[in-house]
Design a protein around this nucleic acid. Sequence first.
RNA 1: GGCGCGGUAGCCAAGUGGUAAGGCAGCUGUCUGCAAAACAGCAAUACGGCGGUUCGACUCCGCCCCGCGCCUCCA
Length: 472
Amino acid sequence: MTLRIYNTLSGQKEEFQPISDDRVRMYVCGITPYDETHLGHARAYVTFDVIRRYLEYLGYKVEHAQNITDIDDKIIQKSKLKSQSCQEIAEQYTQAYFEVMDALNVKRAGEYPRATENIPQMIKFIQGLIDKGYAYVVEGDVYFEVSKFADYGKLSKRKLDDMQSGARVKIDERKKSPLDFALWKAAKEGEPYWETPWGKGRPGWHIECSVMSSGILGDQFDIHGGGLDLVFPHHENELAQSEAFTGKKPWVKYWVHNGFVNVNQQKMSKSLGNFFTLKDIYKKFDPMAVRMFLLGSHYKSPINFSDAQLKESGEAFKRLARAVKDLDFYIENLKGHEAEEEVAETNDEIENLRARFKDAMDDDFNTAAALAVLFEMVSLINREIKEQIVKKASLLAYKEAIVELAGVLGLVIVRDVGTRGDTLGDVEKLIEERSQAKKNKDFKKADEIRDSLKERGIILEDTPQGTKWSKE
RNA sequence: GGCGCGGUAGCCAAGUGGUAAGGCAGCUGUCUGCAAAACAGCAAUACGGCGGUUCGACUCCGCCCCGCGCCUCCA
């Protein structure tokens, strides 16, 4: 099977064929850093992180760029509120963003272009649109004239007439059409501005993505992504600008959009005030529980956030992580070697599971189905350990496979168990003491040791091969 | 009004024209000094409603009901 991706532009799943054979150029709409990163953002960036990881797994070289909108109304507002420069505000929240994303194991993009660092290119781009007759200047503002671009609406499947009748926006009389959108905004008193041929001002929202994506990835590239809420107007407008400017179609081959995170069946959003920041969520839950939660359903479906859901995802993650810890333990402690046929059989099983994992991911990145394959592997491993039909060689092979596939989903299932020598030695000494106590049938003492370690977050489990310990 | 998404066991969630993955929770058993984990098994006889097409639909078609989103800054 080959990879198929749902393309918003065509409204269908399409076979994925990048513009050049061995590399994929992907642009993801990034954040406007004026507030804390919340779960909704996590959904978007985990989605594209998985897409990137899977493409890399398939052997593509992925060029991944993600913008940072470091100048905009919200930032200006916040800057006034906190008496800090826009730059400071943007920088602060950008760093906060990286922190919470790192915890989620989201790979950093190759480039993070900032709007304010690309102003000359934007001016050139806008001037080009004016020269070609797609844009006009009104009192220092520059607008894109939607009616000049025949394909307008093709991404979001809207007709100009439908929109006009339904528009609830207050109409700016200076614009030729209410749908015309700002490429450039004239500066207001006290706002940051840049000099341009048409006066002082700052960029509109959409222009940066057109300019920066093509600046880094070229006039045409493979994947452009973001949340479903960006389809209109943001991406529709970007598309119009870019294709109008270069005359090349399609600007973007595959448009990919992720669904929302809901709270009590409502979209999590800033304006509703029902958003949960990752920083706060991490106080109660492991970031991997969050990742698991996001991976548990298809990236386009709405998902409902609740503590109970995250807890459940955390439990599921633990089952996965435990399986790997167990593998380590038994690789270390299981005596003897298995027959060659057994190893061959293990490799067959792994091949089969790997193929099914790939089938799932090939179907528009079906992480929920891929995860199911991972859990089947866990069951298989646990059963074979229990029945003692596998030994070291098979266990090593299983471990390699499960870490590999979990890695494609960005799940970190192998973790440092605390390598500080003294702590480790201390724990092992206590375990030894407890084993002695158990031998002497001094269960009271044995339980005390187990309880005291539990208070330190260390769980003991007895097995026929000895006592296993792990951190919670 | 326009466009779009969803309604699968107690909960979450894949999926298929021929009687349904996986996870969480529950119950029983095995193992254990006890536990934990794991394993085995059980239970829900799970596919919004009504019609239609078909030998056969949860899966296709039509209508309806319910929930949600976008159309305005938003991942």
